[in-house]
């Protein structure tokens, strides 16, 4: 491998690292907005908890028989 090729590889390394950092930035921002959303939903969940139990399986239960096809 000639020194010139070596240098090319360094450039490639930097280029791809820059690309990765860019994509990581997007990923990080996506995660931040997800966390933001989660926090707001957590507030909502706390408000609803007093009304009824939010956990447990969804569906209307035996009181509302319904055919799913």
């Amino acid at each position: 491998m000639s020194p010139l090729e070596r240098q090319d590889l360094w450039y490639l390394f930097f280029a791809y690292t820059a690309l990765f950092v860019l994509m990581f930035g997007f990923l990080y921002r996506m995660f931040q907005s997800t966390r933001h959303l989660e926090q707001e939903l957590a507030l909502l969940r706390d408000e609803y908890r007093d009304e009824e139990d939010v956990d447990g399986p969804r569906g209307r239960g035996a009181g509302h028989p319904d055919v799913t096809v």
């Binding site: 990923l27 990080y28 989660e38 926090q39 957590a42 507030l43 969940r45 706390d46 908890r49």
Partner: peptide
Amino acid sequence: TKRQTRVRTGTWWL
């Protein structure tokens, strides 16, 4: 008493 729903906020894995 109002229980607080906790949101995991750690980013170390990223």
